[in-house]
Design a protein around this nucleic acid. Structure first.
Lengths: 192, 192
DNA sequence: CGATTCTTTGAAAACAGTCAATCTGTGTGG
DNA sequence: CCACACAGATTGACTGTTTTCAAAGAATCG
């Protein structure tokens, strides 16, 4: 499973075998079965988590008890609650496996050691953070500018490999509409 | 005006006078009158821009010609189009001064020099990026979870000092609703 | 096969957008 | 100092979209 992470790093930067050995020595693999949780809200999140295999959802629960999905994480993506990690406050998010999954965990301390020892890894991490921020900004733009149908199409275009392995009502939750609305929208779009 | 930036840095980290001299030697001050633009869409954005004084709005225009405000930037905030800066693609955003403003500009090259020469500055920058990402995530959460009224209240609570110096229809644009909807919402809330 | 989860459909109510008109406050030029 | 123009805010009537609640069909899994 470390091979997946090695491939991921290779696609973004260059590191030596010795450097990867360090990474490997500090990481921990964790297996999750479908429906198991990586994080429950109220717990302080302390890791950097890389998804080697499977699919996770990060969601929050509002006052009325409705779930809202903030993010899906599949192979070669990161998962976690960055706010909890940085601030040390209890997480507001839950992270649940939607499939049997394998996660590579680094505590923040381990992660910072790797960043310090391997400058190219550090650069990669900052790049990822920047790209994540840009993606978040674009999602905000979509949320205030697009119609529901445009948001849906944009999701399908951006993440076709996620869309085809999760139930439709979770896409609705991610988009911020009810499952009924998404169902109707698809029907009407199909009629054209 | 550099004093504003110095104060800002002091509030986040510690640097020496010599280090600040370097920063000062690399930065450029730019004055903008109300309604002047810092960036027009289609132009490649090349700076890191710190607002010393005034107020800016970053917005995009959709297919129907409607403006949608992504961000307001007042004193001690940053402005710019990070996507354009990182990718080198033409900016999709416009940035306009809502008041007479003073901006401190660093080209990306100058900025990276400062980060390299002053480690504490570099750490500060990464912290800001992380906080920006967390803020963006929370705004996404609000956009898929909150009612329009909750989004409005949340904006007022989070940015009271922005809300009281910009016209109401711009808050509507930031929230993703029409000015009429926000007006009615305020009337109804007032009746309670 | 039965149980569960997911999707679809219908009807009513709540919500938001559109268009047009009016009202309000501000500031500028005569 | 007034009159006017202008930008912003409000209101009304109407239309369109989304939610809600309930029920019925699919699909999936043990």
């Amino acid at each position: 499973m470390y091979e997946v992470f090695r491939q991921y790093i290779n696609s973004k930067t260059t590191i030596t075998d010795a450097e990867f050995s360090l990474i490997q020595s500090l990481g921990t693999l964790k297996k999750l079965q479908k429906k198991q949780f990586l994080l429950h809200e109220g717990i302080v999140w302390k890791y950097n988590a890389f998804v080697c295999q499977g699919c996770l959802r990060t969601y929050r629960i509002d006052d009325k008890g409705n779930e809202h999905i903030l993010q899906f994480s599949i192979e070669n993506w990161w998962a976690g609650d960055r706010e909890s990690l940085i601030t040390g406050n209890p997480a507001q998010s839950n992270i649940e496996a939607l499939e049997d999954s394998v996660i590579l965990l680094f505590t923040q301390e381990q992660f910072l050691t790797i960043c310090k020892e391997i400058p190219s890894f550090n650069t990669m991490v900052i790049n990822i953070l920047e790209k994540s921020f840009i993606a978040a900004q674009n999602r905000i733009h979509a949320s205030i500018s697009y119609t529901t149908e445009e948001k849906y199409q944009s999701f399908l275009n951006s993440y076709p490999n996620i869309a085809n392995r999760i139930p439709q009502h979770m896409i609705a939750s991610y988009l911020g509409v009810t499952p009924e609305t998404l169902s109707r929208l698809r029907n009407q779009a199909a009629k054209k």
